[in-house]
């Protein structure tokens, strides 16, 4: 008797474990809310505004996704994650998707069992120093104390860079961006290193932004993008194509303002398919016809999101650079919608 109870429990446990790994898309629809892992606070990318609402370049991706899947861009629950907690949060199912300046690397893709569905920002690691330090190149940082965020690829890049240039340094490992900024501003470290976009965002939020410079050396490749758990390909497809819909919209000149007009007047078959006027791309994803239209209408196309959050008109002032469309010499390229 005891044995059968034991076996029963085992099979029940197995059943529960099996259900937990089921389709994320159904979970999100059933819940009526998307749970999105974001930064604890990086101005321009993902940070709460004065009213406590999350805003930013990465956050816009969450909103677009919620608009595509649930039809309402506001149905997102933001879970702030640090560099250290983000992957555990995704792997354990605490968040549905992680959009948090995370670098696509071999180990994370293969060994940590995640799928990076796209690259929404091509970045590289840089250094920020105070102007009065008199340093103009990262090669002059021999013996410096460097602040660095724990749980990031930048830790390993930093070690490699100093080793390759036969220099020494003292790392100060901080838990998150705000602590890094505090230590850097207090002078506890000579240089602060993270992704160049992150540095620009940090600098924009400093009271004396003009006294800090970002050194010209970019010491690594940091393709940042949204990621989902490995193995749930349907959900991965939804996230991937929602992102590409935003990129394609920019390419075809569809934006927040003209989307209704374009949808009714366009003669371009690809735009028709994208906006759900023709074909059934949405149904194939497990969504409805107008998924991409809703996503674009909610947050705008890729270019609009970039300019509104981190572009040259904002205090962060990042140039499009590598993140321009492929038609303008950049790397942002959406596969065909057919």
């Amino acid at each position: 008797m005891k044995k059968s109870v034991f076996l029963g429990t085992l099979s029940a446990a197995a059943l529960i474990a099996g259900i937990a790994g089921a389709a994320t898309l159904d979970d999100v629809k059933g819940r009526g809310e998307l749970i999105c892992g974001v930064n604890t606070g990086l101005t321009g990318f993902g940070a709460p505004d004065a009213n406590g609402n999350y805003q930013g370049f990465d956050v816009a991706m969450c909103k677009a996704l919620a608009a595509a899947v649930l039809g309402d861009a506001s149905k997102v629950k933001y879970i702030p994650t640090t560099g250290e907690t983000r992957f555990t949060a995704l792997a354990s199912g605490e968040v549905d998707v992680l959009v948090r300046n995370s670098t696509w690397t071999f180990m994370r893709d293969v060994d940590l069992k995640f799928d990076f569905v796209a690259v929404n920002y091509y970045d590289g690691q840089g250094f920020m120093v105070k102007k009065d330090l008199g340093v103009s190149s990262a090669k002059e940082l021999d013996g410096a104390t460097v602040c660095i965020q724990t749980g990031t690829t930048t830790e390993l890049n930093l070690a490699d860079f100093f080793k390759a240039n036969n220099m020494s340094y003292t790392p100060v490992t901080v838990a998150d961006d705000s602590e890094g900024q505090r230590q850097y501003l207090a002078g506890a470290c000579d240089a602060y290193t993270t992704d160049a976009s992150g540095l620009a965002a940090s600098r924009a939020s400093m009271p004396d932004a003009e006294n800090h410079i970002i050194l010209p050396e970019i010491i690594s490749k940091e393709p940042l993008g949204p990621l989902v758990r490995h193995g749930d390909n349907q959900w991965g497809d939804v996230v991937r194509w929602t992102y590409y819909a935003l990129v394609a919209a920019e390419e075809y000149g569809v934006n927040k303002a003209n989307i209704e007009e374009v949808a009714s007047t366009t003669q371009n078959p690809e735009v028709k398919r994208l906006l759900g006027v023709e074909g059934e791309l949405g149904e194939k994803l497990g969504l409805d016809k107008e998924w991409a239209k809703r996503a674009i209408a909610a947050v705008g196309n890729y270019g609009e999101i970039f300019e509104a959050n981190i572009g040259s008109g904002t205090p962060i002032g990042l140039a499009r650079g590598l993140n321009a469309l492929w038609t303008q010499g950049g790397l942002q390229y959406a596969p065909p919608f057919r």
Binding site: F6, A13, G18, K113, H230
Partner: peptide, 20 residues
């Protein structure tokens, strides 16, 4: 003991489900 074995089994199941 049942609770412990459930915990252990759950861990093994979930590790396997995640291919870890």
């Amino acid at each position: 003991m049942l609770f412990l074995s459930w915990l252990l089994n759950n861990t093994i199941q979930n590790l396997a489900a995640k291919d870890r």
